[in-house]
């Protein structure tokens, strides 16, 4: 296991299509709910505690080697917004393409063959972490970080935020991300005993609602 692998997986420049997704930030910015670093931090904290926790748990679960198809169904049940289900699968397919080249692994090939339209992205991330020799806890860290770094990057572009201030937002959420990753790893460890229904299902009503609104916009800069 190498911590460098975690840096590669978590790098915002990892070519898996994430740069075109704002994680709901574009809609929140358009509505005026996010307009500076303080509101961006609130946004990220809420996203991390809800969909971020679910993503981190799915990633950690997949990294334990748990059946990714069962996890994928659990992800569907936790994603009532069809726009977000589509995005999760699209990002999952794009991440799959990238990691099959970076960390070739038969488990990735099997999942790609079983779900050609894409598995939910956190599950692919978990399997990628596994292929890269990382732990479930690290997979959860990567997913938790991903749930914050996406909106922060998008906000820098959309609001013209000072990139240092925006990066400080991410840094201030380090403790939150570690907590979420720890909780997610705990859930993943109990998975064999508890089953997928025990995985967290935290939801954020506004993320679900605005994802659908955003998908209906005639013009937008970000895919989600």
């Amino acid at each position: 296991m190498s911590s460098v692998s975690l840096l590669i997986l978590g790098d915002g420049r990892f070519p898996s299509g994430g740069h075109a997704h704002s994680g709901g930030a574009e809609a929140a910015i358009a509505a005026g709910r996010v307009h500076d670093t303080a509101t961006l931090e609130d946004f990220c904290r809420g996203r991390l505690a809800t969909t971020g926790l679910v993503a981190a748990s799915l990633a950690a679960a997949a990294a334990t080697g748990y059946d990714p198809l069962l996890l994928d169904a659990a992800a569907d049940a936790r994603t009532p917004s069809p726009a977000l289900r589509r995005v999760a699968r699209k990002l999952g397919r794009q991440l799959m393409r990238a990691v099959r080249t970076t960390w070739p692994d038969p488990e990735l090939d099997r999942l790609a063959a079983a779900l050609p339209a894409g598995a939910h992205q956190p599950i692919v991330m978990g399997l990628a972490a596994r292929a890269a020799g990382l732990t479930p806890h690290d997979a959860a860290r990567a997913a938790a970080y991903d749930s914050v770094s996406g909106p922060v990057t998008a906000a820098i572009r959309l609001l013209g935020l000072d990139p240092f201030e925006a990066t400080a937002v991410t840094a201030r959420l380090t403790g939150d991300m570690e907590n979420v990753a720890g909780e997610a790893a705990g859930h993943a460890a109990r998975l064999p005993a508890d089953g997928v229904d025990a995985l967290p299902a935290a939801s954020a009503p506004l993320l679900d609602i605005t994802a659908e609104q955003h998908a209906a916009w005639p013009v937008r800069l970000f895919a989600s």
């Binding site: 609130d42 946004f43 904290r45 809420g46 991390l48 505690a49 809800t50 954020a204």
Partner: peptide, 10 residues
Amino acid sequence: PGWDGPAVLA
């Protein structure tokens, strides 16, 4: 965390 913020209930 974040329950009343812009991602969840605003």
